[in-house]
Every structure is written in structure tokens, then in C-alpha cells.
């Protein structure tokens, strides 16, 4: 069991560590990460999300329970983040940061780990788990940062409409729902030709997203506001996966799906949250600290939780 868990987690976290060292040692100088991040956020991440979601069977057997539990995890994270922010008397901008980090789990890490744990079998569930997580979480975080900057929820709409990740997710979910209902518009060979470059670009670049996650780690941001930092990491990497595990067991989710739900929702937050925070002049320093701590906590807690879930 220990070796199996090591084989699943080591490569992904090793690449996160490599990303951190590549920036720290200036193998890739600071100024050059911008292009890499932009490529991730605008192209590679949307490409992989679209491909996974478009090919997901969101109406298949067990889909309602799995998507429901995944969505519940996001809503629980939102509620917990708002509650703790209130208890800690956090400002609106700090609350937005806490909400964003708590609600978003790292989808790329999830896809990588799911593939390493269950191989192609995992594909049955990955899209179902990702769909609500991505759509709900993206709406929540873009709204949170846009509202605290603009002071009005309606101001968040233009930002949401233009967000490449949300566009890709909605397009993927739409294709997934509509494609089985209508007769094929294009011959299969044309569809494959259109999907294949996105698949190659997106899947091949999982490692790149992990490396940029590492490059974004900022240990100097861990100083100060420790209660907020810890709250974000504990909600993200401890409370939510435990809640999701409980819900999956209560609702009788498939055993493999349960493991994957824990693997997804217990993952650290994503560098993408930092990109959104920066774009909206949010508390990006605080967000960087929260993401860093959530990566550290997840690196320890997630393998343990996954092993426990596999033993259930």
C-alpha cells in the first residue's frame, strides 16, 4: 500500500518541487514565467478541461450522486470559508481570498493522480467530479474577487463571460449533455481531428501546470495573518475531503468514485486562483501564502486520506 501511494503521489509532487526550485534557482528567470502562466491559463488548462468534460458521461449511472457530492464539497467550502472569515473578523478582501482558496481544488493535480491511481478506469469518474467543481468554483471565485473590487455582483458578469477556464468548462459540459441527444453533425473522423490537437496540447501539458504550481509557491508569504492562512489550508485539505468522504459513504457512491472524490477535493488550491486574484487586484500576497500552505498540508494529508479511503 505504501509503495502504491508513493508511486501515485511522488511524481506529481516532485514536479511541483522542481517548479519551485526552477524559479528559486532562476533556471527560468522571474520575468519568463508570465508567458508560461499565460499559456496555461488561456490555452492549456481550458484545452484539457474542455476535452475531459466534453467526453464525460454526465448522465451515466452513478453520475447524479458523484456530481452531487462534488458540488456539495464546493458549497460546504463556501459556507465554511464565510463562517470562519466572520469569526476571524476578516475584511471583505481577505474573505474573498479565503473563499477562493477554500473552494478551488487543483484539477490538473487531480487528473494526474487519478490517472496514476486507477489508469483509464478513472476516466469514467473524472469528468463527473470535475464538472460541478469547476463551474461552481470558477463562478464563486471570479465573483468574489470582482465584487470586492467593484462593489457590485453585476460587475462580475463581464469578467465571468470572458474567463477562458469558465468558457471551456461550460462548453465542455454543454457538449457532454447535448452530443448524445442529437444526431452527429460532423463525421466522427472530423470530430477526432478537431479534438486530437487539444488532447495532445492539454494532456501533454499536465506536467507544465504542476511545475507552474511549484513556481508559484511563496514561503515568504507565510508570514503574518497565520490564522487566515491555516484556516484556508485546513478547510481546503482536511475538512472538505473528510466531509466529502462522509457524504459519499452516506449517499452510497461507488467505491472507486469515493476514492477519486477524496483525491480531488482534498487536493491543494490551484495557481489559477492567484492569477484571478492578481487580475482583480485582490489580496494576491495572502492568496499566494494560502496556496503555498495548502500544497504543504495536502502533500502530507492527501496520501494518508487516499490510503485510508482505499482501505475502507
Amino acid at each position: 500500500m505504501t509503495l502504491q501511494i508513493l508511486a501515485v503521489f511522488f511524481p506529481a509532487f516532485a514536479l511541483v518541487a522542481f517548479g519551485y526550485l526552477a524559479r528559486r534557482w532562476q533556471i527560468i528567470p522571474d520575468g519568463q514565467w508570465r508567458g508560461i502562466n499565460l499559456m496555461n491559463y488561456r490555452i492549456l488548462l481550458p484545452a484539457i478541461l474542455f476535452v475531459v468534460l466534453a467526453q464525460a458521461d454526465l448522465t451515466g449511472p452513478g453520475a447524479a450522486i458523484v456530481t452531487g457530492v462534488s458540488a456539495l464539497g464546493i458549497l460546504a467550502a463556501l459556507a465554511l470559508a464565510l463562517l470562519i472569515a466572520r469569526l476571524l473578523k476578516a475584511s471583505a478582501r481577505e474573505t474573498a481570498a479565503l473563499v477562493a482558496v477554500a473552494c478551488v481544488w487543483n484539477v490538473v493535480l487531480f487528473i494526474t493522480l487519478a490517472d496514476r491511481l486507477h489508469g483509464e478506469e478513472a476516466e469514467t469518474w473524472t469528468g463527473m467530479i470535475m464538472a460541478p467543481g469547476l463551474v461552481l468554483a470558477t463562478i464563486i471565485i471570479v465573483s468574489a474577487f470582482a465584487i470586492t473590487r467593484e462593489g457590485s455582483a453585476s460587475k462580475a458578469v463581464p469578467a465571468l463571460v470572458r474567463d477562458p477556464v469558465l468558457i471551456a468548462c461550460l462548453a465542455g459540459v454543454t457538449v457532454s449533455f447535448i452530443a448524445p441527444l442529437i444526431p452527429p453533425v460532423l463525421p466522427e473522423i472530423v470530430v477526432e481531428a478537431l479534438i486530437a490537437p487539444l488532447e495532445l496540447a492539454g494532456f501533454g501539458s499536465l506536467a507544465l501546470v504542476l511545475i507552474t504550481t511549484g513556481a508559484g509557491l511563496d514561503f515568504s508569504a507565510l508570514k503574518g495573518r497565520i490564522r487566515l492562512l491555516l484556516s484556508a489550508a485546513v478547510i481546503r485539505s482536511v475538512m472538505i475531503p473528510l466531509l466529502v468522504l462522509g457524504a459519499a459513504l452516506v449517499f452510497g457512491a461507488d467505491a472507486q468514485a469515493t476514492t477519486l472524490l477524496v483525491l480531488a477535493t482534498g487536493g491543494p488550491s490551484a495557481a489559477f486562483v492567484y492569477a484571478v486574484a492578481s487580475e482583480f487586484n485582490g489580496e494576491s500576497g495572502l492568496v499566494a501564502g494560502m496556496i503555498t500552505l495548502s500544497v504543504l498540508v495536502s502533500a502530507v494529508v492527501l496520501p494518508v486520506l487516499t490510503a485510508l479511503t482505499l482501505l475502507l
Binding site: L6, A7, F10, P11, A12, A14, L15, F18, L44, T112, R116, L200, A201, G202, F203, G204, S205, L206, A207, L208, L210, I211
Partner: peptide, 18 residues
Amino acid sequence: PVADTISLAGRAALPLIL
């Protein structure tokens, strides 16, 4: 694990170079 890590990193090379 080391071979798997290098292989995972290597999978990103071709899409980026293309």
C-alpha cells in the same frame, strides 16, 4: 518513482515544442 517523474515531465515537451 524517479522514472515516472521524468516521464511525466517529458510528456509536456512535445506539445510545447510544437
